[in-house]
Design a protein around this nucleic acid. Structure first.
Lengths: 196, 196
DNA sequence: ATAAAACACTAACAGCTGTTAGCGAAAATA
DNA sequence: TATTTTCGCTAACAGCTGTTAGTGTTTTAT
C-alpha cells in the first residue's frame, strides 16, 4: 500500500523513530505496541522491520542520540574559560532549550532508558552517572571559589536536572508562557538559588 | 501452599499493594505482570484475585492514597496564619519527607498515574492540576506581598515539584547524605531561589 | 466439634506481544 | 527497457497478558 511519508528531509527510519518518540512519551515504552506504532506511521506492523531491526533498537537510537548531544555540549562548556556559575547557567539553558525544542526525544530518553536491554542499559547508566558527576565537579569548583553557596553538590545537580524535566507540564499546559520567558524564569530561580 | 506473609500489622491486600509499588517503581506499571507480582508475594497469580479485583485497582489505590495525603496536607498548611514563603517551605519539606519515607508509593503515584483507567485518570489529572494551582496561588500572594521575586508562579511550582522527584536518584545512590541534610539543602536552594 | 468463611491451588480462556517468512508490487539502477 | 533492490503486504509463530472457574485445604467463628 502507501509507502511511508513523502520524505524529502528524512529517511523512513527517521520517520518511524520520530513517531515512536511521540508514542513512547505519551504512553511509555512498554505500553506502546509495534502495531500501535505501525498504525501511526500508516503501515502494517511487519513492514516496520524493513527499516528497524527491533523495538529495542528504536529506544536505543533515541536514548543514545540524546545522550551524545548532552555529552558533547558539556564537554564544550566545561572547556570554556568562564566562571563556574556561568558554566552551570550555560548547561541549564541548554537543557531547557533542548527540552523545549526536542521535547519528545529528550523526555523519552530521560524517562524510559530503564527499558533498554543489556548492555545498553548499563552503558546508559554509566553515561548518566558520569554526566551528573561532571556537573557536580563544576559546582564544587564554584563553591571553593566562593561563587556558589556551601551546599551538597550532588543535591544541586539532582534539583537542576529534574526541574528541567518539569517542562513536560509546560508543554501539556494550555496557557503557556513563551519559551524564552520560561527559560529566564527557570534560570532566575535555580541559578539565584545557587549563588552565594 | 503458603499463605501470604505472617501479617501482624497489615492485611494481605496491603502486602500485595506494597510489593506492587516496589515493582511498579522499578519496572513501571505496564512492564510489571501479575505473575511477576505474584512471585514476589510468594503466591500464584490467580491467588492475588482473592484480595484485589484487578491490576488497575492496585494502581488506583496507590495513586489516590498519595493524592489524598498531599491534598489534606496542603489544606492544613494553607489555612495556617503564616507568610507565603513559610507555606511554600512547609509544602516543600512535606514533599521531601514523603519522598524519603514513602519513596515507592509517592514515586509510583507521580510517574504512573497516566496508566490509570477512566474515570480515575481524568479525576487524578484534575486533582493534580488543582494542587499545582493551589501552590501557584500561594506564590502569587507572596509576590504581591513582596516576599517572593517577580516570577511566573506556574514555573516556580513546576520546578519545585519536579525537583523533589529527583530524590529518586538519591535513593538509588550508594553514598547518600543523610535525609535531613538532603532536606535542608533542597530547601536552601529552592526557597532562597524564590526569596526576593 | 461443626459450620462457615477465607484463600491458595490448577487449568484454562481469549486477546495481545514482538517478530519472521514468503510473496508481489513499486522504485531505483543499469 | 530490463534487472535488481526496496519495501509493504498477509499469514503465522510461540510466548506472554490479565483474568475466571472450579476444587480443595486451611483458618476462623459458633
Amino acid at each position: 500500500m502507501a509507502k511511508i511519508k513523502s520524505n524529502r528531509n528524512s529517511t523512513r527510519k527517521e520517520v518511524i523513530i520520530t513517531e515512536a518518540a511521540k508514542l513512547f512519551r505519551e504512553k511509555g515504552f512498554s505500553a506502546t505496541s509495534m502495531r500501535d506504532l505501525a498504525e501511526h506511521v500508516g503501515v502494517e506492523a511487519a513492514s516496520l522491520y524493513n527499516h528497524i531491526s527491533s523495538k529495542a533498537e528504536i529506544l536505543q537510537e533515541i536514548c543514545f542520540k540524546v545522550a551524545n548531544l548532552f555529552m558533547t555540549h558539556i564537554e564544550e562548556v566545561d572547556n570554556s574559560p568562564v566562571s563556574a556559575i556561568a558554566k552551570i547557567e550555560a548547561i541549564l539553558r541548554f537543557h531547557i532549550r533542548q527540552m523545549i525544542e526536542h521535547y519528545e526525544e529528550v523526555y523519552v530518553s530521560d524517562r524510559e532508558w530503564k527499558h533498554l536491554t543489556e548492555p545498553y542499559m548499563q552503558n546508559m547508566q554509566s553515561q548518566r552517572r558520569a554526566y551528573r558527576q561532571r556537573i557536580a565537579s563544576i559546582i564544587d569548583v564554584g563553591i571553593r571559589k566562593g561563587e556558589i553557596k556551601d551546599i551538597d553538590a550532588p543535591t544541586a545537580v539532582l534539583i537542576m536536572l529534574h526541574a528541567v524535566s518539569g517542562i513536560e507540564s509546560w508543554h501539556r499546559s494550555t496557557r503557556k508562557i513563551e519559551g524564552h520567558v520560561l527559560e529566564d524564569n527557570m534560570v532566575m530561580i535555580l541559578v539565584e538559588g545557587l549563588k552565594k
